[in-house]
Structures are given as structure tokens and as C-alpha cells.
């Protein structure tokens, strides 16, 4: 089947079986490899993209179900105001270790801040606990979200650096 989808503001024509997950269309057809494969069943969040602004697991979203929804990936998230702020905070605190999950983290964090520009620790836990970081950079992820939001960063980072 041929599908026409809207990715990072560009209309793209892709070929694939109806049940092909969006993840593999992005990675192997469109070579947008910033969106990562981690578990294939929507449990780790490495494949998180935005579908009409909502954080969505691309590994369990079939291409046939996308329709006219606007897809934004890590390659395009910096075009938005919150995406840019989140990426700046991520760089300023050097959140990354191996970096493999961080596209998913940035996508989830951006969606959180769009919805809630002043998140509490509880809000961050709720929005971000679906994205696994195997290197456990959680201390910095929390601090970077607060920095992007212009909130006081947690003491642990301030005290250490």
C-alpha cells in the first residue's frame, strides 16, 4: 500500500503493508533514524514522536492509522519554541550518556511543557516515567526540564557543578 503522510511539515509518500509500524517507515523508508527502536511494544518510549502534538509510541502505531495527522520527530522538534528550549537545556546540562533514549525523552518533555509550562516533580514523574533511560540520567532529565521551564533547578545539580 502507498500512504501519504505529513512528517516535520513535509508531505511524504511511503510504501508499506498496512500494519507496518510508523517507526519502521520513519527509520527504514524515510531514513529519519533519530527515532529509536527499544522494545517494539510501547514500553520503553525510545520511539516517541508527536502525532498532532501528542506523544505517541511509533513502534505500535500502524502506518494505516496515521491519516492526515501531523507527525513531528526529533529531527523536527527544534522548530517549535518549546522544542528549542528543551534541546538547549539538554545541551546546557549535558544530559546524555549513551544518548540512545534521549530523542524519546526530548519528545516527551516537550509535549509535557507545551501542556504544562510549570511542571511539578510529580507532573514530571507522570509525564516522563514512560520513557526508560538505561543509563539512568534521570537526575539530569528532571533538572533539564526545570531549566527549560525557567524553574529552579534541583539542588543536586547546583551543588555538584
Amino acid at each position: 500500500m502507498r500512504y501519504s503522510i505529513l512528517v516535520n511539515g513535509n508531505r511524504r509518500s511511503v510504501e508499506g503493508a498496512a500494519d507496518t509500524p510508523l517507526l519502521w517507515v520513519l527509520r527504514d523508508e524515510l531514513h529519519l533514524v533519530g527515532t529509536k527502536f527499544g522494545c517494539g511494544i510501547g514500553l520503553c518510549g525510545a520511539c516517541t514522536v508527536h502525532l498532532n502534538g501528542a506523544p505517541t509510541r511509533a513502534c505500535v502505531t500502524p502506518i494505516s492509522g496515521i491519516g492526515e495527522a501531523s507527525i513531528v520527530t526529533i529531527e523536527g522538534i527544534g522548530e517549535s519554541e518549546w522544542g528549542r528550549k528543551v534541546k538547549e537545556a539538554w545541551l546546557a546540562l549535558d544530559v546524555m550518556q549513551c544518548g540512545y533514549c534521549q530523542a524519546g525523552q526530548v519528545m516527551a518533555a516537550t509535549a509535557l511543557l507545551v501542556r504544562n509550562p510549570t511542571p511539578s516533580d510529580g507532573d514530571i514523574d507522570e509525564a516522563m516515567s514512560s520513557i526508560i533511560c538505561r543509563c539512568c540520567t534521570y537526575t539530569r532529565i528532571r533538572a533539564a526540564i526545570k531549566r527549560a521551564a525557567g524553574l529552579q533547578a534541583p539542588e543536586t545539580l547546583e551543588g555538584e557543578l
Binding site: 533514524v33 533519530g34 526529533i74 529531527e75 527544534g78 549535558d94 546524555m96 534521549q102 530523542a103
Partner: peptide, 12 residues
Amino acid sequence: GGVDSPAILEGA
């Protein structure tokens, strides 16, 4: 900062 950090955040 890590030398690959900017590229990671571009998905590159």
C-alpha cells in the same frame, strides 16, 4: 559537553 550531544539532539 559530549562531542556527539548536539547531533544526538538533532537525531543525526
